[in-house]
């Protein structure tokens, strides 16, 4: 069974991802974004000790460096010229813009990495099956077919290797030809077996009347409460953005990066939204500690 953030109703989880992405996109401010990245990295570690994050980390660094370098090279707007490169101005504003882009990218990537972990395929399908029952069933069937076909092709390759049909050696043209033949075997075989699957479906009354869908998740009081908090916080957050807080003005005049006054309030709200799963996880950990005593 899932626990912590993942045990919440799929709708709450989905809502969090939508709202968090919205907040990251709206609050284009290095201070806000840095904290968002920090929180999300901690979230990753809280989920699986950062295992999945480690797989992506090199790609994230390369991409963000690319943004950091390319933005000042292509964007020349701004008053603070740092230096000239090949006769074009490199401005501080463009550099900050690059930094913002890079941070946004990191934040969104770290967030999506956790998405697969928290929002598993069946939860996702469950959310959308209400509106598209046929499509969700089709998706469920395909979920099984991808690994199935993969296992089958491996088996075919092994067996056909004995007959001399290799896809790993020989001239390219021959390899392609062999590959196509193997795919053909896979298709004939799968279609043939698919008939049996279809029989088994109709033997279990498929297609005779309207299907119901098993709903494995119930919307508890707690989930409703979470939805209220999340939407409330985000509503306030969007209001703050509309007021112009939490967005670093680059042109016409560069705003100082340090937060002032009201911005601290919106920063707190921002942290509460992005760090929402951490709060849930933390709350559960504390409850567990108390229970043990």
């Amino acid at each position: 069974m899932d626990n912590g953030f993942r045990s919440l109703h799929p709708f709450v989880i989905f809502l969090y991802y939508v709202l968090a992405i919205a907040m990251i996109m709206l609050y284009q401010h290095p201070f806000f974004l840095t904290f968002a990245c920090l929180l999300l990295v901690i979230f990753n570690f809280a989920l699986d000790q950062g295992k999945m994050l480690k797989k992506w980390v090199s790609m994230m660094i390369v991409l963000s460096l690319l943004f950091l370098i390319l933005t000042p090279l292509t964007n020349h707007r701004g008053n603070h010229v740092l230096f000239y490169l090949f006769n074009s101005a490199i401005t501080l504003e463009a550099l900050i813009q690059g930094l913002l882009n890079a941070l946004t990218l990191i934040a969104i990537l770290t967030l999506t990495i956790t998405f697969n972990y928290c929002m598993t395929a069946d939860k996702f399908l469950f959310l959308f099956s209400k509106w598209m029952p046929k499509w969700s069933l089709l998706a469920m069937l395909s979920v099984r077919f991808v690994p199935l076909l993969n296992r089958r092709i491996v088996e075919i390759i092994t067996v056909q290797k004995g007959k001399g049909l290799s896809v790993t050696s020989g001239p390219l043209k021959q390899r392609v030809k062999h590959g196509l033949l193997l795919v053909q075997v896979l298709l004939t075989w799968s279609l043939e077996d698919g008939i049996q699957t279809a029989d088994s479906m109709s033997a279990r009354a498929y297609g005779l009347q309207k299907r119901t869908k098993y709903t494995p998740y119930k919307l508890h009081m707690n989930d409703g409460f979470m939805i209220l908090i999340l939407t409330g916080l985000t509503g306030t957050g969007i209001f703050g953005w509309w007021l112009g807080d939490g967005v670093l003005t680059l042109t016409p005049f560069l705003e100082p990066t340090i937060l002032y006054g009201r911005e601290w309030v919106f920063f707190t709200i921002y942290v509460l939204i992005i760090g929402f799963p951490l709060i849930v996880e933390g709350k559960e950990a504390i409850q567990w500690q108390y229970w043990k005593r």
């Binding site: 469920m140 099984r144 479906m201």
Partner: peptide, 20 residues
Amino acid sequence: NQIVMDRVFEELIFGLENIG
């Protein structure tokens, strides 16, 4: 080949869903 779904749980309830 008789199996329709990916997981045991979904497979078991497949028929029940079909009869509404």
